[in-house]
Design a protein around this nucleic acid. Structure first.
Lengths: 163, 163
DNA sequence: ATTCGTGCAAATCATTTGCATCGTG
DNA sequence: CACGATGCAAATGATTTGCACGAAT
């Protein structure tokens, strides 16, 4: 009821960030057309680490292609997600996109809404407890941290801050 | 910008589930009125472990108080959250409520949308990695598991299932 | 009696969808 | 050329808000 098909098209970027070429070839393989807007939207997500919302991406893409419509951004994001090129995350109700689809975890700043990625090998190699296995077949395991990010903490130090 | 004040009224239920009495006394302490709808809504969340959505709660409360309005449910949920009596979680974009505010983790079934609680002491006592500390001041640390729950897996075993 | 909470209806916000047109393969 | 993609506008779904009345302290 709330699910999404998750059959990632095989990206040949073993080391990290998939580039524009990967988009082209993967779209072709999937029978999807490579349009200007798709390329821009994709590069916009991949070339940032700030986990933008659909609206933020719409604004950014609009600077490059003033005529894009919001729908195209939404539609493209969904197609990129289905293709396994980007991932969607919802923290505290806010939907954000992440161009990094590799396994990693998130820190969410409850003050400014910023999202930061972080790795945690020790966690990744930890065995799940019985209590968790009892729930069902686990496909993914992620950690979500919440707190006040460095930026916010620092701006509070300097006087009243932006609280 | 996306935050919520989080000053939990002090609940005197050291061992677990806060009962109706706690609601009464805590509301009073906070200068809030104890209405019939609030009591019903609260007991509805506390006496279930299925992490209902606002809409589901609305339906359930409606069986007891046919005249409740959806808004009252929404408003009450927000007030209960602000008071620290229930917690709100968003998994894959769906907002759910949890009457258990103690520290625990969640398993989300990507097939049926069910949410299960589980404890993980080993994780709780693990020290955060430097990569995480670098992000900021961590206030909460939760694990989110996604996969296929037991129920779904079993119903698939028996023929076509409900996929 | 006061003041807060409720129900109602309308407003808002994010996201989705139908459709005619446009661009890519 | 043909079919998928785009832009537009309208639809939808979830949640919020303004307001007058009703209930709790």
């Amino acid at each position: 009821m709330i699910m999404k098909k998750q059959q990632r098209a095989d990206i040949s970027a073993p080391n990290g960030v998939p580039g524009r070429h990967d988009l082209r070839q993967a779209c072709r393989a999937a029978g999807l057309k490579v349009t200007h807007q798709r390329e821009i939207i994709f590069s916009e997500i991949v070339n940032t680490t700030d986990h933008p919302s659909a609206e933020m991406l719409f604004e950014r893409v609009r600077e490059k292609i003033p005529s894009v419509s919001r729908d195209t951004v939404y539609r493209t994001l969904s197609m990129l997600e289905d293709a396994g090129f980007v991932s969607r995350l919802t923290l505290r109700g806010a939907t954000r996109f992440d161009g990094d689809v590799s396994a990693h975890h998130h820190f969410f700043c409850t003050q400014c809404g910023a999202v930061y990625d972080f790795d945690w090998r020790e966690f990744d190699s930890l065995a799940l407890p019985e209590t968790a296995k009892a729930c069902g077949d686990v496909a993914s395991s992620r950690v979500v941290l919440e707190g006040i990010c460095r930026c916010c903490a620092e701006s509070e130090d300097n006087g009243a801050g932006n609280a």
